[in-house]
Simulated assay, not measured.
Amino acid sequence: MKYTLITGASSGLGREFAIQCARMGMHIVLVALPGGNTASLAEQLMLEYNVDVRFFEFDLTDADELEKRIDDILRQYPVNFLINNAGIGGTASITDTSLERIDKIIMLNVRSTALITRQLIPHMLRHERSYIMNISSMAAFTPIAYKTVYPASKAFISVFSLGLKEELAGTGISVSVVYPGPILTNSGTSRRIISQGLKGKMGLLPTPDIARKAIRMTLAGYPVIIPGLMNRISHFLMQLLPAGFKLRLVSREVKKEISYSI
Rank of each mutant, 00 (worst) to 15 (best):
M138F: 04
A139I: 03
T142P: 00
T142E: 05
P143E: 07
P143N: 01
P143K: 02
I144L: 14
I144D: 09
A145K: 13
A145G: 14
A155R: 13
A155Y: 00
A155S: 13
V159C: 10
F160M: 11
S161F: 10
G163V: 06
G163M: 04
E166D: 14
E167T: 07
L168V: 01
L168M: 12
T171D: 07
T171A: 09
G172W: 04
G172N: 05
S174Y: 13
S174R: 15
S174T: 12
V175C: 06
V177L: 12
V177T: 15
P180L: 12
G181Q: 08
I183V: 15
I183R: 09
N186G: 14
S187Q: 15
I193D: 10
Q196I: 06
K199C: 01
G200H: 14
G200E: 14
K201S: 10
G203V: 11
L204S: 05
L204Q: 05
L205T: 12
L205I: 06
P206A: 07
P206Q: 09
P208M: 08
I210P: 01
A211S: 09
K213Y: 12
K213C: 02
I215S: 04
G221K: 09
Y222P: 00
Y222L: 03
I226A: 02
L229N: 02
L229D: 00
M230Q: 05
N231D: 09
S234T: 14
H235F: 10
H235Q: 10
F236H: 02
L237F: 11
L240I: 06
L241S: 05
P242C: 06
A243F: 00
